[in-house]
């Protein structure tokens, strides 16, 4: 089965006053039908750039994004419409993703009116349907965003994404601005919808715990490059790359007796304007040696599944 969406050697370099900024380098990943892929990284790692490239809000400077094996740049007008219908985003901040001047019905209607041939009545029926699917009611369609709480707004944003019967949902930190009790509700809604409609999801997050809950497979990005990929249970409990290990140690569990992790995070995230030579993580890595400074490690298959880009793992441990 071919992936709905895939990226191949995807890269984006911005020209800035301080020189070239490599926001994303050589990112290859597949979103298969019904599967949930997690993308994990900290600020400045290129998560946002990846999103924008997939959503055609920006164009890559290297590699390409493919929709069902066809590069985005080669899509015909109709295929592009199909793509826009099939790939739907939900953003982090529901206060910014809903136009405060439009009623909910109009907000949800927008992608349908633009990319489908549905009649007005069909669209209205669909709006009611998706509102109910996310736990709101059809009465809410005639209200303004300001009348809803943050959690409800995020449900509206999800309903909007759901309306055009997508095949892939692009979830960009959809719960990180929500309260704990609301966070759990939204995560459940997303998981239910995914199972019910057989959606593929690309779940972007900085939090390994939510990723563990939501995803089958995970890629970890550091300074624009994939450093590790593998099944969610491996990445979130026994990661192989020192960066992922530090990330796991930094994911504080709600348990005062949680065991201390062996690898502790240290150092600052380097500026993407002046990325370190060799392995991008060597400046913060407790195990770094000369080779790490000189040569960039290649992704190698690792025990437990997936790949790791680390000289030390390659050489059989520290």
């Amino acid at each position: 089965m071919s992936p709905i969406l895939s990226t191949h050697g995807l890269g984006r370099t911005f020209r800035t006053k301080g020189g070239p900024l490599h926001a994303l380098t050589d990112v290859t990943l597949d979103c298969d039908p019904g599967r949930s892929l997690g993308v994990v990284g900290e600020s400045g790692c290129g998560k946002t750039t990846l999103n924008r490239l997939i959503l055609m809000l920006d164009t890559p400077t290297a590699g390409e994004v493919r929709f069902k094996d066809k590069p985005l740049a080669q899509l015909t007008t109709n295929e592009r419409k199909a793509y826009r219908r099939a790939v739907q985003p939900v953003f982090q901040n529901p206060y910014s993703s809903l136009n405060p001047r439009l009623r909910v019905r109009k907000i949800i209607r927008e992608p349908l009116a633009a990319n489908t041939t549905m009649s007005r009545a069909q669209i209205d029926a669909r709006v009611d349907e998706v509102l109910e699917a996310v736990g709101l009611s059809s009465r809410d369609a005639d209200r303004l965003p300001a009348e809803f709480s943050g959690g409800q707004r995020q449900r509206i944003a999800i309903a909007r994404a759901l309306a055009s019967k997508p095949e892939l949902m692009l979830l960009d930190e959809p719960v990180s601005s929500q309260d704990i009790s609301i966070r759990a509700q939204i995560l459940n809604v997303l998981k239910d919808l995914r199972d019910e409609y057989g959606l593929a999801t690309l779940f972007v997050s900085h939090d390994l715990a939510t990723v563990r809950f939501m995803c089958d497979e995970v890629v970890v990005i550091y300074l624009g490059r994939i450093v590790e990929r593998g099944p969610a249970n491996v990445i979130c409990s026994a990661p192989r790359h020192p960066y992922t290990q530090a990330l796991l140690a930094a994911t504080l569990s709600a348990d005062p007796d949680a065991p201390e992790m062996a690898t502790r995070p240290q150092g600052e995230i380097p500026s993407p304007l002046a990325p370190p030579s060799g392995c991008p993580y060597h400046t913060r890595c407790p195990h770094a040696h000369d080779l790490c400074k000189a040569q960039r490690p290649q992704a190698q298959p690792a025990e437990g599944g997936g790949t790791v880009a680390c000289h030390l793992v390659e050489q059989g441990g520290w």
Binding site: N188, K191, A209, R212, S237, S253, A254
Partner: peptide
């Protein structure tokens, strides 16, 4: 309601 890295329940 807090998710954990240690396990992945079906629902929270």
């Amino acid at each position: 309601a807090v998710p954990s890295t240690r396990e992945a329940p079906d629902r929270l």
